[in-house]
Design a protein around this nucleic acid. Structure first.
Ligand SMILES: [Mn+2]
Ligand SMILES: [Mn+2]
Ligand SMILES: [Mn+2]
Ligand SMILES: [Mn+2]
Lengths: 231, 231
DNA sequence: TATAAGTTTTAGCGTCGTCTAATTCGACAC
DNA sequence: GTGTCGAATTAGACGACGCTAAAACTTATA
C-alpha cells in the first residue's frame, strides 16, 4: 500500500458517501487533482488487488477490503486532526493539510497512543465522525446540508467540509463552527443562505452553504421549532 | 527534495561526524541498506543540485546548503523523538523508527509547535544534541566512546546510538541510560567492557560499548576521579 | 436510429529510485 | 613498472506514478 493508493481509496470512500456508488473516473480525478488516464491506470491496479470492484466505462465501488483500508486512513486523518487541535494548539481551520500527509506515515502504535491521549474521540474538529478501531463505517449522524433548511429553522452546525482552507477561515470568522446554534433568516435565489448567529447575520453563497451540515436543535426531529414562516 | 534525498543527506552528515569527510559510496550504501550503484546515481543527483561536493572515485562531502538541509532533517528527527517520549509515553527505545519516517512529513508549523511544547529541548532521548532553528552544527558535547574509558573511571552516560532497537532494549534493561553514572570495573580482551551501575555489574560486548558515549563526572576533566587502578 | 458530445480507456512517453551484471579505476604489493 | 584486488561507476532494466494525444465507448438528442 503506497500513500498514493491510500488517497485513492479514501477519495472513493468519500465520493461513495456523497454520491453513492458507482464512483466515476472523472469524479476521482477532480477530487485528487489528477488526469483521467492517471486515474484509470490506478483503478486497474486497485482492481487487480481486489480493493475495488470495477466495471469498465461504468465506474468503481469499494470492496470490503478496500473499504476497511479507506476507513483506516480516514481514522488516521481525523484522529490526527483532533490531536493537533487538542494538544498542539492548531485551530480547526489549520489542521487538514498536516493530517492529509501524516495520515499515511504513522504507525499503529502511534494511532493507539493518540487515540488514548484523546480519550477515543467520536468526531474530529470539523464534526466529522472518526471511524472506530473496528473500522466499520460510522452510522449516519442525522445531519443534512444547510441548503436543505427552510427559513425560520433553528439548527445546530454539525459538520463543515475540511477541504478548503479559505472557506474554513471564513466560516471561523463568521462564528459558524460545529456546535453553534443558528437560525435561518433567508434563503435567496441561487441558494444563498442567510443565518443569524450570535449577534449578527451571515450570508453564505450556495457553494459554502452546501458544505455546511446541520442538525435539528435538541430532541427536535425535523419540525421547525420557533418561527413558522414558510418560504 | 524527496524523503529519499533527505535520508541520503542525513546519512552523509552523520558519517562525516563519525569518520570525517570524505564519505565513501559504500559507507552510505551500508548505512542506508542500498546497493553501491544506487548510491552512485543518487550522489550524482545531489552533486547536480550542489548539495554535496563530489570527486569521482574519491567520495563526497556536504556543501553548506546540503549540511543545512541535513541539520533540518536531524532537527525534525530528534524533536519528534523527544516529543513522542515526553508527550505520548513512548520509551526511549521505541522512538527511533517512528521518527525516521515522520521526520520527512511534518510541516515547519508542526516543527515550531512541537519545539515550543517541549520548551526547545537541547537533546533527544538518546542524549543526541538537537540542532537549533539556526541549523548550525551543534558544538562538540565533550563525550567519547565508552571503549576509550579506563578501568576505575567513573563516567556519566551521555549518548546512546539510536539505530538498533534490540541493543537499546538491552541497555535500557541494564540501566544504562543517558544521565546515569557508572564505574568501569573491567576492560577485557576484544574490548568487552564491564561497568558497575546501581547495584550490579553489566558486561557489554565491544560492539555495544562502542555505541555508548560517556562524559567525565561533574566538573572533572579527564583525570580518573576515584580508584586509580591501571589495566 | 443516427449522430454528436462527453467520458473513459489506450498508447506512448518521462522521471524517480531501485536493482544486477559488466566494466573501469586506484592503491598497494611485488 | 606491472599486476592484482577491492571499490566505484557504467550499462541496462524495471516498477510506480504521472502526463498528453488519440481512440473507443456511452448516452443523450435530433
Ligand atoms: Mn493523504
Ligand atoms: Mn476533518
Ligand atoms: Mn528517514
Ligand atoms: Mn535519537
Amino acid at each position: 500500500m503506497s500513500d498514493v493508493m491510500e488517497d485513492y481509496l479514501k477519495a472513493i470512500y468519500v465520493l461513495e458517501s456523497e454520491e453513492g456508488p458507482p464512483v466515476s473516473t472523472s469524479a476521482i480525478a477532480d477530487r485528487l487533482g489528477k488526469t483521467p488516464p492517471t486515474v484509470t491506470s490506478m483503478l486497474e491496479k486497485l482492481a487487480d488487488r481486489e480493493l475495488i470492484h470495477r466495471e469498465k466505462y461504468k465506474g468503481v465501488e469499494l470492496s470490503d477490503d478496500g473499504r476497511t483500508l479507506a476507513l483506516e486512513v480516514l481514522r488516521h486523518h481525523r484522529l490526527i486532526e483532533a490531536y493537533l487541535a487538542e494538544h498542539l494548539g492548531y485551530s480547526w481551520s489549520e489542521v487538514h493539510d498536516e493530517a492529509d500527509t501524516l495520515e499515511h506515515h504513522i504507525s499503529e502504535e502511534f494511532e493507539r497512543r493518540v487515540a488514548a491521549s484523546l480519550d477515543d474521540p467520536a468526531v474530529d474538529p470539523h464534526g466529522d465522525p472518526i471511524p472506530g478501531i473496528d473500522l466499520e463505517p460510522p452510522a449516519d449522524d442525522g445531519s443534512r446540508p444547510l441548503t436543505t433548511a427552510a427559513v425560520g429553522d433553528r439548527v445546530v452546525i454539525a459538520r463543515v467540509s475540511d477541504r478548503d482552507d479559505e472557506e474554513l477561515e471564513y466560516l471561523d470568522r463568521a462564528g459558524i463552527v460545529p456546535g453553534t446554534t443558528v437560525e435561518v433568516v433567508d434563503v435567496a435565489p441561487f441558494g444563498m443562505v442567510t443565518v443569524a448567529v450570535d449577534g449578527g447575520e451571515q450570508s453564505l453563497p450556495e457553494s459554502v452553504a452546501a458544505s455546511v451540515r446541520v442538525r435539528a436543535t435538541e430532541a427536535d426531529n425535523g419540525v421547525p421549532d420557533e418561527e413558522v414562516s414558510g418560504a
